[in-house]
Design a protein around this nucleic acid. Structure first.
Lengths: 203, 203
DNA sequence: GCGAGTGCTTAATGTAGGTTAAGAAAAATA
DNA sequence: TATTTTTCTTAACCTACATTAAGCACTCGC
């Protein structure tokens, strides 16, 4: 794909994502686009490390990002979320408070992303109040999804959670290491391996 | 406390809660207040049942409310959240989508609450755009708290989660049935009882 | 192409927390 | 106050998942 077409595709992806919830005019669209920076990163790049302030939030154009943290003794990873094409991701606590966080954001699969700093975001809220609405709705939806995941973790077995995961992230299933899926579901890689085998044999 | 003073207290509680994040002028404050209805309910009142649309969100003046759902076989309750004085509560999915939800909101301890319908809320967003910001911030904070709880559920033992619960809800601990605390922590009442005894003996 | 790390699987053993059941205590209702 | 209902506790037994440890299969940097 020629570079110009690629850039048109990226711009459209972001604008359509916003247009799902609020209508912007051409001028507003341009102001919004100017507040983002387009970057590419190979797999394994760490975009954020524990202890740092999460200055930026990321809109994923292609590839896969992952937000995770370590438990108290630094022994186990817990995946907070994955993000693929057309998703937003950040360390919410650190990004919103602009204080040091305790999570990591890493590139799982080579990624093209649109980056917006908290400073730029707040400036956009002032210049385009409709974007305040957009992020309110984004927060509302994240909260609902997160609440549902919490309930699933309490009410469902690991097997059922895995089935829901496959529905929610149909593509991710084949593109991230199994141990990362396990750490999203809240089980060990060993148990996940056993569970997967059992599911295969049942078919 | 004479009725007039009581009402002044209630109005101040709500306005101060809003003032934590946005500054309203007198006129805006009045418009906001007019969008709420003040009601009282005895313990055990169900303000919302599974299958209903969550028309209203609630700001708790006094007492305790609880949002919970049942699992697939209707056998176990899972507490999504408690709300005491100065907290907001609703079935987020149903309130935001205005579609039937699958959770309950019940009064755990006799309560005085300020009720605002989704319709009124959306009207307020139009009349007082600053309130859009207020609810964005409220959603952001709920999301952060919910994400932390999810991580705690994956990373911590039931005992550690109980300790955090006691820190987060210092008053609730003594005012709601233990089985409801257990259902918030994600353990059975029987195990919770055993765990509490163990904690007492350790001291 | 080679070596070092990383990820996946399997299996034996361990444990946090669930289930069932029954009685005692407390609280709601009459 | 009496009666019913709900809540709390205890104890025996059960299970989903964790831990440890080992071997094999990758993939990535050199």
């Amino acid at each position: 794909m020629p570079i110009n077409n690629t850039i048109i595709f990226i711009v459209e992806l972001l604008l359509k994502n916003v247009a799902k919830h609020v209508q912007l005019n051409k001028e507003e669209e341009q102001i919004l686009l100017d507040s983002f920076v387009l970057t590419r990163h190979p797999a394994r790049t760490k975009l954020l490390k524990s202890g740092e302030v999460c200055i930026n939030s990321f809109f994923v154009v292609s590839g896969i990002l992952r937000n995770y943290c370590l438990d108290d003794n630094q022994a186990n990873e817990h995946t907070i979320n994955f993000a693929t094409t057309d998703w937003w991701i950040a360390d919410m606590y650190s990004f919103l408070s602009q204080k040091p966080g305790n999570s990591y954001i890493e590139v799982v699969e080579d990624a093209i992303i649109m980056t917006q700093s908290r400073e730029q975001q707040l400036a956009i809220f002032e210049r385009i109040p409709k974007m305040e609405r957009f992020f309110r709705i984004l927060m509302e939806r994240s909260l609902i999804a997160n609440q549902q995941r919490l309930i699933d973790n309490m009410a469902l077995s690991a097997e059922e959670r895995y089935k829901r995961f496959c529905q929610r992230f149909p593509t991710i299933k084949y593109n991230v290491p199994q141990k990362q899926i396990a750490s999203y579901l809240g089980v060990t890689p060993e148990f996940f391996s056993k569970m997967k085998k059992k599911l295969l044999m049942e078919k």
